[in-house]
Amino acid sequence: MIINNLKLIREKKKISQSELAALLEVSRQTINGIEKNKYNPSLQLALKIAYYLNTPLEDIFQWQ
């Protein structure tokens, strides 16, 4: 199972779901689904999230 800290990191950086979704060219619902662990992002999307949040990938997504 993958645990993610996306919501915590996104809120710490004061970025809304809508703003992050626009940067990543995905829907706000996609961001919401990832934050709620409804599904895991593709590797490409995970890397883009880490890039736009300027945060190491392993700080956002962790195996458990």
Rank of each mutant, 00 (worst) to 15 (best):
M1E: 05
M1C: 07
I2G: 05
I2N: 06
I2H: 08
I2E: 07
I2C: 08
I2T: 12
I3E: 07
N4M: 03
N5R: 11
N5L: 04
N5T: 04
L6Q: 03
K7M: 08
K7E: 11
K7F: 06
K7V: 07
K7I: 05
K7T: 10
L8G: 09
L8T: 15
L8W: 10
L8C: 09
L8I: 15
I9H: 07
I9D: 01
R10M: 07
R10K: 01
E11D: 09
E11V: 12
E11L: 13
K12T: 12
K12R: 14
K13M: 14
K14M: 13
K14N: 15
K14P: 04
I15F: 11
I15A: 03
S16A: 07
S16P: 07
Q17N: 04
Q17R: 09
Q17P: 06
S18H: 12
S18N: 13
S18M: 13
S18P: 07
S18V: 13
E19V: 10
E19L: 09
E19G: 11
L20V: 03
L20S: 00
L20N: 00
L20Y: 01
L20F: 07
A21D: 02
A21E: 03
A21N: 02
A21V: 03
A22S: 12
A22R: 14
L24K: 00
E25M: 12
E25R: 15
E25S: 12
E25F: 10
V26G: 02
V26A: 04
V26Y: 03
V26I: 13
S27Q: 07
S27V: 03
S27L: 03
S27R: 09
R28Q: 15
R28D: 12
R28T: 15
Q29C: 10
T30H: 09
T30E: 09
T30M: 12
I31M: 04
I31K: 00
I31R: 01
I31V: 12
N32L: 13
N32P: 03
G33C: 11
G33K: 15
G33T: 08
G33W: 13
I34H: 01
I34L: 07
E35P: 01
E35N: 01
E35G: 00
K36N: 15
N37T: 05
N37A: 07
N37S: 11
K38Q: 15
K38L: 15
K38A: 13
K38P: 02
Y39F: 14
Y39V: 14
Y39E: 10
Y39Q: 11
N40Y: 13
N40G: 15
N40L: 13
N40F: 12
N40C: 10
N40R: 10
N40A: 15
N40S: 15
P41R: 01
P41W: 03
P41G: 02
P41E: 01
P41M: 05
P41I: 10
S42W: 04
S42L: 04
L43N: 07
L43C: 09
Q44W: 12
Q44V: 13
Q44N: 12
Q44L: 12
L45I: 08
L45F: 10
L45M: 09
L45Q: 06
L47E: 10
L47I: 12
L47Y: 13
L47R: 13
L47N: 11
L47S: 10
K48A: 10
K48M: 09
K48P: 01
K48T: 06
I49M: 07
I49P: 00
I49D: 00
I49R: 00
I49G: 00
A50T: 04
A50K: 03
A50Y: 02
A50N: 01
A50S: 10
Y51I: 08
Y51F: 13
Y51K: 10
Y52Q: 09
Y52V: 15
Y52M: 10
Y52N: 06
L53A: 02
L53E: 00
N54K: 12
N54W: 06
N54Y: 06
N54I: 05
T55V: 12
T55E: 11
P56T: 06
P56A: 09
P56K: 08
P56E: 08
P56Y: 05
L57G: 02
L57K: 03
L57S: 04
L57T: 04
E58Y: 11
E58L: 10
E58S: 13
E58H: 14
D59Q: 14
I60H: 01
I60N: 00
I60V: 08
I60F: 03
I60W: 02
F61C: 02
F61I: 03
Q62L: 08
Q62M: 10
W63Q: 04
W63S: 04
W63P: 04
W63L: 05
W63E: 04
Q64W: 08
Q64L: 07
